[in-house]
Simulated scan of single mutants.
Amino acid sequence: MSYQNILIAKEHNIATITINRPEKLNALNKVTIEELHHAFSTLETHQDIRAIILKGSGEKAFVAGADIAEFAEFSVEEGIQLSAQGQETLFNFVENLKVPVIAAINGFALGGGLELAMACHIRVVSDNAKMGLPEVSLGVIPGYGGTQRLPQLIGKGRALEMILTAGMISAEEAYRMGLVNHVVKQEELVSFCNEIAQKIIKNSPAAISMAIHAVNANYKEGENGFETEIKSFGKCFGTEDFKEGTKAFLEKRKAVFTGE
C-alpha cells in the first residue's frame, strides 16, 4: 500500500512512523487513520520489528487534533459511527498492539492527537509540547477514548478538569500528572525515544506482547487482570523465548530471542 499521509522508516528492529501532514499540523482525517491502521497492522506481522516510534512531521505538532472539516455536518448516527470506527481501527488497535509503541510528542498534541498518544504504550514529550482535549469548546466530547484513558493515567479529578476547561497543559505539567513518561529537549526527542526502543528490543518479544496484554486486561470490563496475568505467565513457559532466556541465563550469556 502506498501512503499519502504517513512515512515509514526501519532501522535495527525499530520502525518509525511519521504522520506527514505538516500543512494541517498533522491533523487526523479518515485517510490518515486508515493508513496508520494499515501501517501498524503490517509492522506487527514483521518478526524483525520489535518496537515502533510514532511521531509527527515538522516542529509544530505531534497531531493537532482531528480534521474538523470532515465531520462538521455529521448527524447523530454518523457521529456514533465516526467514534466507533476510529476507536476500533486505530486507538484501541494501537493500545492492544503486540509491539510496543512509543509516542514522540513534539509541539501540540490536542484532541485526537492526545488520544492517539494516550493509546500508545509509552509517551515522551519535548519541552515545548502543549497537550489538551479541547472538544467541549466545539460542543462535542472526546470520542477516541479520551474520557476513558485520561482518567486511567492521571485520575478522575484532573481528567475532568482538563476535559471540562478545554485547556492546554505544558510538558512539565503533563509529567507531574503522570500523563507522560519523560520530558526532554526538543532536539533530543527522537534519539531519546530510540534509546528506550533499544532497551526494549533486547528483551523477549513473546514476553513483551504477553505483558502488554496482561496490563491492558486490568482496564477492560469483564476481564480479571490477575487471572489474565496468571494465564499469560503460564503461556510464556511454552515459548521458545522462555527456553532461550532461561538457558542463556544459566549459561551466563546474552539471550537471542526470536519472538516464538
Score class of each variant (00 low, 15 high):
residue 34 E to V: 06
residue 135 E to N: 11
residue 71 F to V: 14
residue 248 A to S: 14
residue 208 I to D: 02
residue 174 A to N: 02
residue 120 C to W: 00
residue 219 Y to C: 04
residue 30 K to G: 07
residue 137 S to H: 09
residue 122 I to H: 00
residue 212 I to D: 06
residue 257 F to C: 09
residue 139 G to W: 05
residue 30 K to W: 10
residue 135 E to S: 05
residue 251 E to R: 11
residue 161 E to I: 07
residue 150 L to E: 02
residue 89 T to P: 05
residue 254 K to R: 12
residue 41 S to N: 15
residue 88 E to G: 02
residue 181 N to A: 00
residue 3 Y to V: 06
residue 126 S to H: 02
residue 235 K to D: 14
residue 121 H to Q: 01
residue 103 A to H: 01
residue 59 E to N: 06
residue 254 K to Y: 10
residue 235 K to G: 06
residue 144 Y to Q: 10
residue 253 R to N: 11
residue 139 G to D: 07
residue 20 N to W: 05
residue 206 A to R: 14
residue 163 I to N: 07
residue 149 R to K: 13
residue 192 F to P: 00
residue 150 L to N: 04
residue 211 A to S: 07
residue 170 S to T: 13
residue 113 G to C: 02
residue 142 P to G: 08
residue 113 G to F: 04
residue 120 C to N: 00
residue 231 K to I: 07
residue 102 I to Y: 01
residue 254 K to T: 06
residue 109 A to R: 03
residue 177 M to I: 00
residue 184 V to P: 01
residue 31 V to S: 13
residue 79 G to I: 09
residue 43 L to R: 03
residue 112 G to K: 07
residue 19 I to Y: 04
residue 20 N to V: 03
residue 130 K to L: 09
residue 237 F to E: 07
residue 61 A to C: 09
residue 21 R to C: 05
residue 43 L to H: 07
residue 134 P to G: 12
residue 100 P to D: 09
residue 195 E to V: 01
residue 23 E to Q: 15
residue 36 L to E: 05
residue 116 L to T: 10
residue 19 I to R: 01
residue 81 Q to E: 15
residue 18 T to H: 03
residue 43 L to K: 03
residue 112 G to M: 08
residue 201 I to V: 14
residue 111 G to L: 10
residue 50 R to C: 07
residue 68 I to V: 12
residue 77 E to D: 14
